[in-house]
Design a binder for these strands. Sequence first.
DNA 1: ATATTTTAAGACATAATAGTATTAAATCTT
DNA 2: AAGATTTAATACTATTATGTCTTAAAATAT
Lengths: 145, 145
Amino acid sequence: MKVLSKSCVYGLRALLYIVSEKPRGAFVNIGEISEQLNISFHFLTKTFQVLTQAGILQSYRGPNGGVALARPAEEVFLIDIIHLLEGPGFFDNCLLGLAGCGEAAPCPVHDFWISHKAALKEEFRTASLAQMGARINMKKLRLGP
Amino acid sequence: MKVLSKSCVYGLRALLYIVSEKPRGAFVNIGEISEQLNISFHFLTKTFQVLTQAGILQSYRGPNGGVALARPAEEVFLIDIIHLLEGPGFFDNCLLGLAGCGEAAPCPVHDFWISHKAALKEEFRTASLAQMGARINMKKLRLGP
DNA sequence: ATATTTTAAGACATAATAGTATTAAATCTT
DNA sequence: AAGATTTAATACTATTATGTCTTAAAATAT
C-alpha cells in the first residue's frame, strides 16, 4: 500500500528529523540528514528545494550553512508538506480513479473510501511538526534504519 | 492519493462489471468490457490473464468466448483481487517506507496509519463480488465514465 | 584574492508502470 | 476443411518516478 511518493516520504522524514533532533531554528547540514536517514543526498536536496521555495524551509550556503525551518514548527502541518510534494488534490481522488466520482455519481467504494480518506486527512491536517517532534522524542520513534 | 495501480483498478472495475451486469457464470467478451469501461483492451487482457491463472476467472477462446467467474461471486472478495494484482504484502507496508516498522520499532505515524490500514483491509476482506454487485445495481453506482 | 564548504540547478541514467502491437492458439460457423 | 472470432502470450514503446552526476553559485575562512 504505497500511498506517498519517495520524495514526499523523504521530505517528511527529513523535517521530522530536524524538529526532533535539533534546537529550533538551527541550520542543519543536508549531508548530515541524508546520512542519518540513509537518503540520497542529491535527491533530498531536490526535495528540499521545493520546500525552500514554498517557504517551509530557509537555506543558507557555505560553511555552517544548511536548511532550517522558515516558520515555527507549531505552524507547519504534515498536510502542508504532503500537498506541496504530492499535489494539492492529493486527498480528492477516487479510489478507482473515476473522474467526477462524488455524492452525485459515486463509484462502488466511494462511501467507505471517503470516510477513511477524510479521517486520514484530518490526522495530517492537525499534526504539526512541533507536535510530531515532541512525540518522536518522548516515545523514541524512529525515522530511519 | 493513488493507492491502487491501474492494473488493479481495471481488474476490480471489470470484475464488478461482470457481476453487476451479467447473469452468473456467463462468459463475457473482453472487448465489450473494455469498451463499456473505457479501458484499453490489451491492457485489460493482460490483467485478466493474471486473474485467470489464479483461478478467479476462467476463459474461453473463439466466437462467443470470453471470461467468466471461475468461482461463485459470494466466495471472491475484493482483497483477493488486490493481493493478486498488487502483491501479497499490500496491507503490510509502513507509510514512511521503513523496513521492519512495527510495534517494536514504530515510525512516527505508525499508530494511526495501522488503524486506518486495518479498517480498510477489513472492508476489502469482507466485501464479496456478489455483495458489491448487488449494491451496484441497487444504488445504481457507476464503474465507468 | 583564493580555496573550501555548502546549497542550487539541471542534465543524465535507470527502473517501474502503463499502454500498444503482433503473433499464436483455440473455438465456432459454414 | 476454411475462415472468422476471440483469448493467450510475447515483444515493443511511452511515460513517469526515482536516483546519480556534474557544474554553478553563494558564503565563509584563511
